[in-house]
Every structure is written in structure tokens, then in C-alpha cells.
Amino acid sequence: MQQQATSPAPVSRQLSRDEALRLLGNVTFGRIVFISRAIPALRFVAHAMDGDGLLIGLRYEPEIAALLRRVCHVVYEADLLDAATRLGWSVVLTGRAGLVEDPQEVKQAQIRLQAWPGELVDVVVRLRPELVTGFQVAAGPLAS
């Protein structure tokens, strides 16, 4: 009688701050969540790492621009998950965000940010994460 080989069971583990930020640098899109008109609002956006912070590119919306003209708290989430295997990672940043208003800095950021097809990056936001959390799900007990 033949035995079938089985895949190791997936293992979930928490990521350190450094691991989470490194993984975040491997993707270019995520979701920003902020409070608008007393309810959570979410936008799918482009991002690029900026040291330990994050540059976020958005399409101009007067309400978002007004909100971010003053520094406010936001949540940012990005992930890379395989639907078939259910393996991958997810990272969440919570921190203060504000508009980048220097025209030269905005131009440089727009070059780095890869907008979603059909979208423009009109507004650049800098997020300074205060809390960085994340987890990774990998195959097998030796996953790291």
C-alpha cells in the first residue's frame, strides 16, 4: 500500500516591525483607511517606502485633501496572499499622515509611485507609522 505525501500544515506567525516594513516594500498597492464624515472610508492606493515611513499616492478628492492638510491618524494595510494555497502575509500600519506639499518632493514621489491602471497620483501623503503589525502564513513548521 502506497502512502500519499502530504504538504506540511500552514503555520501562522507574527512579523517583527522590520520584517513587516521589508515585506511592505515588496508590493506597490494597499488600502488607506481614514475617518470621513464620522464613518470609516477606504481607498485602494499606490505606495512606496520612504525610510521607515510610507509615501501614498491618491487621486485628488477635495474631502481627502482637506482632511490630510492637517495631520490625522490613518490605518494602512497591504498584503500578498495566494488564494489557492492561502499562504502569504498581511501588514497593517497605524500612524499619522499628512499631505506632502513641497512641489519638488511631490514630483519625486509621483515618479516612484506606480498608480493603479487608469488612475492618477495627484496627491501624495506621508505616513509615519506608530504601530506596525503583521502576520505571515507559510507552509511547514520551519517557515520563517
Rank of each mutant, 00 (worst) to 15 (best):
V27D: 10
S16M: 02
L24C: 08
L113N: 06
A143H: 05
L81T: 10
R22W: 10
Q108S: 12
G30H: 04
P141A: 15
Y60E: 04
Q108P: 04
A46S: 15
Q3H: 15
V71G: 14
P10H: 02
G134I: 02
A41F: 05
G118A: 07
V33Q: 14
E61M: 02
R126N: 06
L142I: 06
A41C: 08
L68Q: 03
R59F: 02
R43Y: 03
V137N: 04
W89H: 04
R69H: 13
N26G: 12
S7Y: 05
G57K: 02
V74D: 03
E119P: 01
R126T: 09
L15Y: 00
S16D: 00
P103N: 05
R112P: 09
I35W: 09
S7N: 09
A109Q: 09
L15F: 03
R43V: 06
H47I: 12
F29D: 06
Q3W: 13
V125H: 10
V74I: 15
L23H: 07
M49F: 01
A38V: 12
I35L: 15
R86M: 13
I35T: 15
A143K: 01
V123S: 07
I111Y: 11
R128D: 12
V106F: 13
Q136C: 03
A139K: 06
A65T: 04
Q4I: 13
R126Q: 07
V75F: 03
A9W: 02
P129R: 13
E105R: 14
S12V: 05
G134M: 08
Q3G: 14
Q2M: 11
L113V: 08
V132G: 01
F29K: 06
L24V: 09
G53H: 05
V71T: 14
R112F: 11
A20H: 01
A41V: 11
L67Q: 07
V11R: 09
P40F: 10
R128L: 12
V75W: 02
R86E: 14
D79T: 03
G53S: 15
R22Q: 14
Q136E: 13
P40A: 09
S144A: 12
R31Y: 13
F34Y: 15
F34V: 12
T6R: 13
H47E: 07
A84C: 08
Y60T: 04
E105G: 01
R22E: 14
R70D: 12
